[in-house]
Every structure is written in C-alpha cells, then in structure tokens.
C-alpha cells in the first residue's frame, strides 16, 4: 500500500474531524485539503509503523489553529465577535452556511479551540483519552479537564436533553 492509498483509506475520518472543527462543511473540506497538501509535502517526516491517522489529525489540528489565528485577526477588523450569526458574512457561501448551521455546529463553534478539539477527537472521532492526549500533545489530566469543561458548556447550550 502506498502513502496515498493509506491516506485515501482514512480520508472519510479526516474529513469528519475537519468538519467538526470548522464552521461548516465547505470550510471543513478546505481545511482537510490544506492539511493533505501539507502532509504530501512532508511525507518524509511520517515514520512508517506509526499511526498515520494520528499524524494526520495532528496536521489538521495545527493547520486549523494557524488559520484560526489568521481568521481572528481578520474578524477583529470587520465585526465584533458577539455579533455572532447575523453579521460578518464573507459572501454568499457564508450566508448559506449560516442558514444551514445546526444547533450542534453553532454550539461547537462557541467552544474555545482547546475544548473543541478535545471534544472532536473523543466524542466525534472516538479516540481514547490516551490517543487524543497524544494528538494534542497535552497530559491526560489536561485533556480530561478540557473534556469536562467542553461538555458542560455544550450541555448548557444544547439543553439537558442534549
């Protein structure tokens, strides 16, 4: 099996992870594509025998963090953050995406990045705490406290019936 076929095999999961971090599905695919391009360029850094999915989760997460910083700078220029869902659309796609946005998407977006990525890896991707902590490069205790806070916030936003 080649590097590319291995990537193709895990791509459905990578797209899902990217979608759970991103504001909508289109942004998720853009994130996934940027991460794939990065991975193909850096293929020599992947060590055969180690988990390709963990390596890819890490790359997606790093690209997302970098893009998030850039987006935040841009957002501060255009609109106050609390303006939320009603303003600040970049174009037609943004308007459409907001219309389609579900409660779950909105609640995930409201989480701080460090809670969102922990929730995405464990609750969406089904990683164990140990695997998720390794992807994020944090101790287990840090991961579990992010999970506790993130879940509490989600339940508060989505209601007890979650």
């Amino acid at each position: 099996m080649s590097f590319e076929s291995d990537l193709l095999a895990i791509l459905p999961r990578l797209r899902r992870f990217a979608a759970s971090l991103s504001q909508d599905r289109a942004d998720g695919d853009d994130l996934c594509q940027a991460a794939l391009e990065k991975a193909l360029r850096a293929r020599d850094q992947w060590q055969p025998g180690t988990r390709l999915d963990s390596w890819m989760y890490r790359i997606i997460r790093n690209v997302w963090i970098d893009e998030g910083r850039a987006r935040q700078r841009a957002a501060r220029t255009f609109a106050p953050e609390e303006a939320g869902a009603d303003v600040g659309d970049a174009g037609d796609r943004g308007v459409e995406a907001h219309v389609m946005l579900s409660d779950v998407d909105r609640a995930m977006q409201a989480l701080p990045p460090e809670q969102r990525e922990a929730i995405a890896l464990v609750l969406v991707e089904g990683l164990s705490y140990k695997e998720a902590a390794e992807v994020l490069g944090v101790p287990m205790g840090t991961l579990t406290s992010r999970l506790v806070r993130g879940r509490g916030a989600l339940i508060a936003m989505l209601g007890e019936a979650a």
Partner: peptide, 27 residues
Amino acid sequence: RLRARLTDHFAPVGEEPVPDRFRTLLA
C-alpha cells in the same frame, strides 16, 4: 445523549464518498 448527538451529527461526513477533489489530489 450528548455524545450520541455529536457522533450522529458528524457521522454522515464520514459515510459520504470521498469528493473528487481529494481523489484527484492523491492520484
């Protein structure tokens, strides 16, 4: 229920066929 709701919400993305843009990139 929260865990099930999140899993179910994003599951369709993982079940879709991989879009052509990714197949092309990898090919």
